[in-house]
Simulated assay, not measured.
Amino acid sequence: MFQGFNLNVSNESRFDSPSTYDEILKSREDNVRESLENFYNEEGLLNGDSLRKEWFPEIENCHVFISHSSKDRELALKLANWLYHEFKIESFIDSTVWGFADKLLKQIDNKYAYREETKDYSYEIRNYTTSHVHMMLSNALNSMIERSECLLFLNTENAIRNISLKEDREQYTFSPWIMAELQTSALIEKKQSPNSQRPFGSLESNKTDIESIVKRAKSFQMIHKANVEHLNNITCENLSEWAKDCNGEKGYNALTTLYRDYAPGCR
């Protein structure tokens, strides 16, 4: 990662453009397997490294990592389309792998945690399986932040709340994934992109019960401090100006102009 930006979104209509990038994103999702059977070794153990590479693959040659609230998935897709249409910039959208984590966890839990006699799941086993899957997902996201040249954080009301705790007004998020991604981007060593030579671098019977449990679990909320101080602040208006200043530049060259205009350390 070379630079990060805190994008305050006020008008998403600025990102209206042909959906040329949708097929690229869909092709990535289609490559993910839907079975666990190919990942057992001779001893009958699941190979976590092979699972991570298949279910949460590292995407080559992504210019930008887009961090966002799950509620802003459509906005993130519109931004990715706009970046590709304007600059041929390829994006990694983190929510495209969150769904994979849920699918993988469901397959594992159906095989190991479901109790036929009581028609429910073992709490202890689910805690254990969830920790494995979430750690694989976290490692995969951290790796993609490190490999991408630029991080764009979509700062919306869905992602960030201004909350006053003991008279200290700070920005907080309800999402542990946003908290982790922002913290990773703050700690990761900024470096020139290796890709650039520039100086910048079947359970139908109890389905209703399970759904009610999931719904109740999702009502749980915990706040986490959103560390955005290390990111350069930009707006949708800044992105529009960037598009005008690029004069047809694409890919990494277009990002160079963005850094020059809105990242003080690169001027």
Rank of each mutant, 00 (worst) to 15 (best):
L36A: 06
N238H: 07
S212W: 06
G99V: 13
N238T: 07
N38E: 15
V64H: 03
I234E: 08
K207F: 06
V133D: 00
N253C: 12
F100V: 14
S131P: 03
E12D: 11
E167G: 14
I24L: 05
R216C: 09
N227L: 00
N41D: 15
D261Q: 14
K191E: 10
N127E: 02
E229Y: 00
N195P: 08
F92S: 01
V9A: 06
E241W: 03
P194M: 08
A263W: 00
M1P: 14
E43Q: 08
S27Q: 12
N61G: 07
E117T: 07
C236F: 03
M135D: 13
L45W: 08
Q221M: 10
T235R: 01
R267Y: 05
T96E: 13
R52S: 04
N233M: 12
S10E: 10
P194D: 07
V64A: 07
S138A: 12
T208R: 13
E23T: 11
I188C: 07
F15H: 01
N110P: 13
L187Q: 09
I66S: 01
S67M: 09
D30W: 06
G4H: 00
A159Q: 02
H134W: 09
A80H: 03
N238P: 04
E12L: 06
T184W: 04
L152Y: 00
Y112S: 15
N139W: 06
S240V: 15
E43A: 02
F153K: 08
T130D: 10
S69Y: 00
N127G: 06
S131V: 00
K207C: 02
G48R: 12
T96P: 08
L83S: 02
H134Q: 13
I210A: 09
T96Y: 01
C266F: 05
F56M: 08
N206F: 06
S19P: 14
N11F: 02
V32W: 01
D94C: 02
